[in-house]
C-alpha cells in the first residue's frame, strides 16, 4: 500500500494544515468574543434609561437608596397617600402579584421575594408617619418611600415619572391642604441589579403581572439574561 507511506512532503503539508487550522480557530474565537462584547455594549443602549441612584427615607424614617433593593426583583409604584382610588387599586394589584409570585416559586428560590415599593410624589403632605400609616393597608412587605421635594423630584426624573405637585415654597402644597396630585400611574419592574425590565399599567391584571414577572425570574435563574440582551439588540 504505497499511498500510506509517510514522505517528508506529506509531513510538511500536515504541519502547515495543522498550524493553519490552529490559527483560524484562534482568530475565529477572538472574533466571536469581540462581537459578543460589542453586542453587550450596544444592549445597554437599547434598554430604556429608567431608574438609577436615589436617596429617600423609608416609612420607618431610615435612609433608603437604590442599593437597598439590589439582589431581588422590585415592583415600584409612584403615588400619594391622599390619592382617591387609582393608587390604592394599583397597590392592591401589586401586593396580590407579589404574594402570587412568592407562592408560585419553591422556598429554595432566592428570587421569590419581590420588593413591593411605594414612592410618594407628594412630599409636602406625605411625612414618614403618614406613609407609615398608609403602607399598613397593603402588602406586609410594602416599602413606603418619601423625602424632600428635591429628592422626590430627582427620583421621579430618574424613573421618568411625571407629577404635578407644586414645590412647597409656592405655598400651595402643605399638610392639611386638600388637593390632588396628577402623576404617571405605571409601576416598574426592576431586576436584581437595579435595571429596568418592564412597566405595567392599569390594564394589566394582577395575574398578567404575576406571569410576566415569573417569566423574568425564570430567565434570570437560567442565566439567560445576557443572551436576552444580545438578541434584543440584534433584532432592532
Amino acid at each position: 500500500m504505497p499511498g500510506l507511506v509517510f514522505t517528508p512532503k506529506a509531513g510538511i503539508l500536515l504541519l502547515l494544515t495543522g498550524a493553519g487550522l490552529l490559527f483560524y480557530f484562534d482568530w475565529e474565537k477572538k472574533r466571536i468574543k469581540e462581537e459578543k462584547e460589542k453586542a453587550k455594549a450596544n444592549a445597554t443602549y437599547g434598554r430604556p434609561d429608567v431608574g438609577g441612584p436615589f436617596q429617600m427615607i423609608d416609612h420607618d424614617g431610615k435612609p433608603f437608596t437604590e442599593k437597598n433593593l439590589l439582589g431581588s426583583y422590585s415592583l415600584v409604584y409612584f403615588g400619594f397617600t391622599n390619592c382617591p382610588d387609582i393608587c390604592p387599586d394599583e397597590l392592591d394589584k401589586m401586593g396580590e402579584a407579589v404574594s402570587a409570585i412568592e407562592k408560585a416559586l419553591p422556598e429554595s428560590s432566592p428570587l421569590r421575594h419581590v420588593n413591593p415599593v411605594f414612592v410618594s410624589v407628594d412630599p409636602a403632605r406625605d411625612s414618614v408617619e403618614q406613609v407609615h400609616r398608609y403602607v399598613q393597608d397593603f402588602h406586609p412587605r410594602l416599602i413606603g418611600l418619601t423625602g424632600s421635594y428635591d429628592t422626590v423630584k430627582a427620583m421621579c426624573r430618574a424613573y421618568r415619572v411625571y407629577f404635578s405637585s407644586p414645590p412647597p415654597q409656592e405655598g400651595e402644597a402643605s399638610p392639611g391642604q386638600d388637593y390632588l396630585v396628577d402623576h404617571s400611574i405605571y409601576f416598574y419592574l426592576m431586576d436584581p441589579e437595579g435595571l429596568f425590565v418592564q412597566a405595567y399599567g392599569k390594564n394589566n391584571t394582577a395575574q398578567e403581572v404575576t406571569e410576566r414577572v415569573l417569566q423574568e425570574i425564570t430567565k434570570w435563574e437560567k442565566g439567560e439574561r445576557a443572551e436576552q440582551r444580545y438578541t434584543f439588540r440584534t433584532q432592532t
Binding site: 391622599n82 393597608d137 392639611g176
Partner: peptide, 12 residues
C-alpha cells in the same frame, strides 16, 4: 371635610 381629620389621609 379633610380638615376635620387634621390632614391625615383616609385609610382603607
Amino acid at each position: 371635610p379633610s380638615d376635620s381629620s387634621g390632614g391625615i389621609a383616609p385609610d382603607r
